[in-house]
Design a protein around this nucleic acid. Sequence first.
DNA 1: GATTAGCACTCGACCGCTTTGAGTGCTAAA
DNA 2: TTTAGCACTCAAAGCGGTCGAGTGCTAATC
Lengths: 360, 360
Amino acid sequence: MQGGGSELNERKKLILKAIIEAHVKEGEPVGSKYLTQNKQIALSSATIRNEMAELESLGYLEQPYTSAGRVPSESGYRFYVNSLMQKYRMSQNELARMNALAKSRLAEIDRLLESATRLAAGLTNYTSIAIKPKQSTAVITKFKTVLLDKQLFMLVMIDGMGNIKTRQITSDEEINEETLARLENELNARIANKRVDEITVSLVMEIERSFGEGEGIISSVIKTVCETLGEPEGGDLKMAGVNHLLEYPEFSDAREFKELLGVLEEKRDILKLVSDSDLDEDGPQVLIGSENILEEMKNSTMVFQKIKSNGKVVGAIGIIGPRRMDYSKVISTVEYIAQNISLMLNSSLSLPEAFGEDEN
Amino acid sequence: MQGGGSELNERKKLILKAIIEAHVKEGEPVGSKYLTQNKQIALSSATIRNEMAELESLGYLEQPYTSAGRVPSESGYRFYVNSLMQKYRMSQNELARMNALAKSRLAEIDRLLESATRLAAGLTNYTSIAIKPKQSTAVITKFKTVLLDKQLFMLVMIDGMGNIKTRQITSDEEINEETLARLENELNARIANKRVDEITVSLVMEIERSFGEGEGIISSVIKTVCETLGEPEGGDLKMAGVNHLLEYPEFSDAREFKELLGVLEEKRDILKLVSDSDLDEDGPQVLIGSENILEEMKNSTMVFQKIKSNGKVVGAIGIIGPRRMDYSKVISTVEYIAQNISLMLNSSLSLPEAFGEDEN
DNA sequence: GATTAGCACTCGACCGCTTTGAGTGCTAAA
DNA sequence: TTTAGCACTCAAAGCGGTCGAGTGCTAATC
């Protein structure tokens, strides 16, 4: 049923490609007669029918019911994506919108991802997600403290990726700036750059000893730090353009749509899906239908690409839509945006850019 | 058409109430015969019909078409909410789930709001939103800096509400810890607690003079600060349970649903809607159908309540659903959650709580 | 005067039927 | 090998009739 597709002759490839592109465009089963309009295919409907029958028996096409047109199967789309598809050429307008993002000078990954999702959704007319994986908080590189009230202070933690986590901590006793500064030093000296399993009881005791008074705070703080490090749902997911999905008749079945929406909201599964995929894969990845492990996504396709900053995966951006999707456009868009973001992140770290030249 | 409702006698009120509650429960037009089952109404269907006809001419009921049952009109719901509705009694289970939130010790408003939305959506089976208005960043009370790289540092800004904003700033020249500390002091001394219109050019020049070297950084920093203060779309909106909406037949019309979704994603309008409403109103507010100014929400109802911390509005939590809504339950839930959050925020600032007693 | 029983009427929902037409597979001719 | 022709299939769309919930009105009853 799968088949690498190498057994297909050129004519079959041509017809398959035409069928997929017609189906993506029209959204309805494609018949043999329709294809005769295609100038590239100079064949009668009967011949096309024969070829279609063979393509079906090879598993690339499906028939919703006897004597309806043909619809691409999952492996049909897969073969299309792997071998037939041509690269999409961005329009001037689209390029302009992409470049607007590049010019936005958003240095922080959070805001960058948010803008990127919106852009991706807007350009493709599909739903877009941006993911920041949890793995990023393996280690905290820097602690900062801010006194907010007599007994309340804020702990700011920064990890290697530039992510910031803040927690407010209440103390039983009054704290002053000076104590807090000592706490900060202590944390930076002994806890910074340690993994959660390296924070041992004896280490904590050592800190308490050297800190002296107010050990109560120490234990609160350490606990908070450990919680933050271990945080299982640390990953963040942003979404945009959910409403676009409703434009596609395949989601007019409310029940299915509801389930898909539920999964998207329940961030956990999606995060898992993305982080499960090949970590080494650099380019865009396409999961068609049941290639998504999630039952709820078996009628959807997800295209995403990881975003790297200095060699590390710091996020991913993706598009979710029906299986019948403009793969060429979507893949190009995702790829382009992901690359651009990676570029921006890298450049903001190494090549200092001139700030403040444009005044608006 | 509007009418305060005082012209209604007890019997009409009873019937109107019964109709609304039946319609909310069943989702279908309510007929006179159906109401005769109601023990409270010991009348024949004919009498009820007469009353219903009058209620319709008063504008409280509507007929989808000749000789269908009656459906509450907008003013019908409004009257119900204002005068007829009884307070919803939480079940044991519901109370337990609410209290779980209270016990969660989430001190930061962001995470608190996120949990609260999820809770509200889960309890009511409607879509829930949580809003953090932009107004909160009128003034920055504290600056902190963190050196990330030779020419890159992070500016952490904390405002009066405990909101944290971070920006990364690149410098043309190399920076060391010591310079950065001076910058931090300078900012805290001269910019902290100033409104954006109080940051004058002469003030900036003064800082540059006293700071001496590397004035380039100063202007970058000040620019960033002003951007942050003025940030027009600063408000944040979290959503949960969007998929619940699809359970209600009134949203099975995909086009309408799509529009509503679009508005919810386009946070701006909702933020405006909430902040436009009576600032002084403390209790839950109910916007039924076209009482929402947004065209896209004319078939929806929104119930929300502001959340105050130390007298200031720091957010709001709300529920969005069809006009046919279990008002009693929704209003109670929103009210309860909002009050609880307010309480938690206040207590975490003033009354120090014992931490670390429960170990899970 | 208020209530109720009775009755004719309305109108969408539903059911089953037919028609339509796009599309197929097969066969025989080119 | 390709194509024209033909019989066949089947969902979609259109149509007419029935059903029944619900109404408004009128006349009888309390």
